[in-house]
Amino acid sequence: MAEDNNKATFVVISGDMDKVFAAFIMATGCAAAGMDTTLFFTFWGLNAIKTGKIAKPDSFLGKMMAVMNRGGINRLNPSKFSFAGIGRGLFKKMMSDTNVASLPELRDMARELCVHFQACKMSMDVMGISQEDLIPEVTDIVGVATMVNNASKSKIQMFI
């Protein structure tokens, strides 16, 4: 459908609610404009594509991480005014009051417009995250070379 260089690549390293919002909105905009769009989630960004169930990695540190960094799109905190979790609810209320789509809605829309969700294999290994801890929409578990290959063909590349 899209020409080979009509691509957009977003590297999402942040797990902050506001930054993930920006990533999904821009990716949706690119996909709506007919671009072949990829979101590459790495490190804290992986929290945006976790199921939200507590993972059960083998290592002790991995288990600690799974509890302290549980993730799931509804558990992301804003980068400012987080107030130990209260800010999250505050922003959700303000957004729903102004009819702004929620993060899960945006993520669903991105998928509907065929945005590709890729997860960084190395970050998953470090944090003890396995594929079943991620939502089924994540089809590709890849490394930096795949990201670079996509980015080199993209008109828009962003690091969030």
Partner: peptide, 14 residues
């Protein structure tokens, strides 16, 4: 009506 960015554009594309 009632939708905010980027939803009108996303639905339009769809």
């Amino acid at each position: 009506i009632g939708q905010m960015c980027p939803m009108p554009i996303a639905y339009m594309a769809r």
